[in-house]
């Protein structure tokens, strides 16, 4: 069990780290998609089939597509990626910050009392989930629905720009 978990963790973190360091945006996105698949595998491992399903559908399916489109639409900006002294300094700083964060968190985990008895994998059926969503969490479900609608409309408005009538409007 633990070995499987370790494997999943290594694969996920590995792909994520690779995605963050690659020069090519396209490669980054594809690698990150692999990392999301790893997260979905973790959900499966933990018994949350539905969450895994949602993860695959939304991240691997939808968000990665949107990202790919965004990458392709903004292609001309690739020449900006030449690493300069400023970006090297920033990278150093970022690695420092990330390492500090990871160190603090891992130290906390090691010191904390998270040792629990091994327990069987919990099961949750989609019917139970539906009951919960439509019952006690119905209000949040509605709010999330509204949020998604607003985000969709907002995204369309933002991306639509000033309209076809005035192409020279953008500075």
């Amino acid at each position: 069990m633990t070995a499987v978990l370790a494997l999943i963790a290594l694969a996920t973190i590995g792909t994520a780290a690779a995605a963050m360091t690659r020069r090519s945006l396209l490669h980054s996105v594809l690698l990150l998609t692999g990392s999301w698949v790893g997260v979905a595998a973790f959900y499966l491992w933990a018994g949350a089939e539905f969450a895994a399903f949602a993860q695959v559908l939304i991240y691997v399916g939808a968000i990665s597509m949107a990202l790919l489109f965004a990458v392709l639409l903004t292609r001309r900006s690739r020449e900006d990626f030449a690493p300069g002294p400023a970006s090297r300094g920033r990278a150093l700083y970022a690695i420092l910050a990330g390492a500090a964060l990871a160190g603090v968190l891992l130290a906390a985990i090691a010191r904390g009392s998270l040792a629990v008895a091994p327990s069987p994998v919990p099961t949750v059926t989609v019917r139970q989930l539906g009951g919960q969503l439509m019952g006690p969490h119905a209000a949040s479900l509605l709010v999330v629905g509204v949020l998604l609608t607003v985000a969709l409309i907002g995204a369309v408005v933002l991306a639509a720009g000033t309209g076809p009538g005035k192409p020279g409007d953008a500075p």
């Binding site: 978990l5 999943i8 973190i13 994520a16 963050m20 910050a97 964060l101």
Partner: peptide
Amino acid sequence: FSSVLFAVGLTGALA
């Protein structure tokens, strides 16, 4: 696992 993933994400976002 989740902490390290978080740190990787933060590093990427900062770098």
